[in-house]
Amino acid sequence: MPVIAVDAMGGDFAPDEIVKGVARASLTTTIECLLVGHEGRIQAVLDSVSYNPEHISINHAAEMVGMDESPKEALRAKREASIAVGARLVAAGKADALVSAGNTGACIIACSRHFRTIKGVRKTALASVYPRQTEYPGQDRLALLLDVGATVRCDALDLVQFAIMGSAYARRVSKVTRPRVGLLNMGTEEFQGDEILTEAHRHLKMLAGIDFVGNIEGNDVAKGRADVIVCEGLLGNVVLKLIEGIADVVTDVASNAVKRRVVWRLGMALLSRGISEITHLTDYAKYGGAPLLGFENLFLKAHGRSTASAIENAVKVAAKAVRDGVPQEVTAGIQAVR
């Protein structure tokens, strides 16, 4: 069984929700979780929940990086921060993957410091799964968007590598035999966008082993024309936050409407099933976490506001990715292109 290291101190609701999520995973799976963080605080949470001790071990880490701290400075000052210790443990082979809901910047820096980049990979990419409208038989209803924040700007070759890595992940984890890859752009025509995007389009079109479906516009992201969408980190992060924001606003508007008028309340009651389906679909807790691709080791970033069930799912996704050999698949994809 794979060993998944979990940063117990990272996240808005850490360590309570993180430890509870791991406790749940210990009861429902045989995955071995290695909780990294303050031993006393972790045990205090464990004492209050049901768990299976046979699947949980703890590695004490005296320090932690806060969600609002500057990642670089915090990691420089706190050598024993839970995220750094977790990354070291994975790099040393004590665990097969690392899961964290903590400070994204600190996670990326810790992984860059301790994990080895796959030979040939120029830049790593943080991927994110999101729900889409179109359903394909035999596939899960999620698409992959990368990069969503590991890099700010990147060139055409970086985008090509993101496509290869995203494809490998979708093949292994989402079980899509031939993932459709799209390039996020301001128009569907291949000459749209700046030089980087047109060059990336040209390369992707010629690349064997990638099912390139062309440029994807913003309004196509949620429709699901592609299984993997590649873009630079800045743009990806904006898109991701926009999707999350819209989901939050829809829920808020609906609940406010209920309070205002009886007729609206009646209408909302009729729509409640549909709204709950949307909420269910956009619930990040269900998807667990998103991988940081490009390293020899696996890192899964869970949402900062992750609850116990999100962490439980993140642990399961990480174990699945380890079992399915995602880093090996990414390596093979990169090597094939080189």
Binding site: E39, D47, P53, E54, I58
Partner: peptide, 17 residues
Amino acid sequence: AYTREGLRNSLDDLGRR
């Protein structure tokens, strides 16, 4: 079908408690 890792974790758990 217990594992050696599981028993090690059980021992550690008892110590922590």
